[in-house]
Structure formats: structure tokens, C-alpha cells
Amino acid sequence: MDGHVERIRIAGEDSAPMESVESVEARPGGLVGDRYYEGTGYYSPYDVCEVTFVAAEALETIREEYDIDLTDGRHRRNVVTRGVDLHDLLDHRFSVGEVTFEGTRPRPPCAHVERVADEEGVMEALTEGRGGICADVVDGGELRVGDEFGVPEPANPEPSSIARAMRERADERAEKRVE
């Protein structure tokens, strides 16, 4: 996979401007210093995305089609990526540098994003797959601008894999009983 992290942004509390950082510590629960990790996000504790990803290409499309420039962080997403189809990461575990994430769901826009961005049309611009995704931190570490994406793996093995593993375990136990 050729994708990489182009920018990282965090905000310490609800509605605060997104601050650009070169690196941040990712832990189960989110990014240290970000509003949702700290429990101070607008939707805390009801609708929490540990980490949000948005594609730089989507932001470029928004600028071209809607004449709205969200590259200043008004999109309210944590990680801006380039060269990766974020929706391919849903229901998969994937690494970014030394951190392992699990893509959990699309992140559609909301009226709150438009209010904070203080620009009409932001919510509509972030629709149709341009809003990014949510991901949970599985194995933490330092997340850095420039980190590359690893090859995603299904988060939950196929049922046939589970069945095969169960059969193998049963066979191993049967062999031990015979000995």
C-alpha cells in the first residue's frame, strides 16, 4: 500500500480549533491530547470515534466542487491521508507507522462540523464518502506525519477460518487424549 499520513490534527476540547502536530501518541481510546481521548468532545461519551481519518484527495475535491477550503482543519478529522482508499480499511486492521488501528465505520458529517467551520455547505461537501472513517487504536505508539500504511487485514476472520481453527484445536486435543 502506498498511502501515508499527510497531516495530523488534534483539538483539546469541543469546538476548539484543530491544531496541526508532527506526531502524537496513539493509545487505545484515541490520540493523547485530543478532545475525544480526553472525554471533552462534542459527542462524548455517546458517539465517539477514537481517531478519524479523511483523505487529502477528498478535501481537494471539496475545494474544486464546492469552493470550500478545509485544509486548515475545519473538517474536524484527526488524520489526513494521501494515496489510500479509506473505505477499504473499514472492518480491517491496518498499521500506520508503529500504530495498529481497526476501521470501525464511516464518519458522516454533522451540523456541528458546519457550525464550527462557520461556513455554509461544509456538511454537504463532506457527504458522499468524503467524510472519512472512524478507527479504534488496537496497538498504540507514536503516530507521525509521513508514516506509511501497512497492508490491511480483515478485523474478524472469515467464518471458515474460525471453523478451521476450531477443528484443528479439537484434533490437537484428541491427539493429546490418545497419547
Rank of each mutant, 00 (worst) to 15 (best):
E65L: 06
E65I: 00
Y66D: 05
Y66T: 02
Y66A: 07
D67P: 00
I68L: 08
I68R: 00
I68V: 10
D69H: 06
D69C: 07
L70K: 01
L70Q: 02
T71S: 14
T71Q: 08
D72R: 04
D72E: 13
G73R: 00
G73W: 01
G73K: 03
G73Q: 07
R74C: 13
R74M: 15
H75T: 06
R76K: 12
R76H: 09
R76S: 11
R76L: 12
R77I: 03
N78I: 02
V79S: 05
V80M: 03
V80W: 08
T81S: 10
T81C: 08
R82K: 11
R82I: 01
R82P: 02
V84Q: 09
V84G: 04
D85H: 11
D85L: 02
L86Q: 05
H87F: 14
H87C: 10
D88Q: 09
D88K: 11
D88A: 09
D88N: 11
L89E: 08
L89D: 03
L89R: 09
L90Y: 07
L90I: 15
L90Q: 13
D91G: 15
D91Q: 15
R93T: 13
R93L: 14
R93Q: 15
F94A: 13
F94I: 08
F94G: 12
S95H: 11
S95R: 15
S95G: 14
V96Q: 11
V96R: 10
V96P: 08
V96A: 15
V96Y: 10
G97H: 13
G97P: 13
E98T: 10
E98S: 15
E98P: 14
E98K: 12
E98Q: 13
V99H: 00
T100N: 06
F101R: 01
F101K: 03
F101I: 04
E102C: 09
E102I: 08
E102M: 12
E102W: 10
G103Q: 07
G103M: 07
G103A: 10
G103P: 09
T104P: 02
P106H: 13
R107K: 13
P108A: 11
P109H: 01
P109L: 02
P109V: 04
P109N: 08
C110P: 02
C110M: 05
C110F: 11
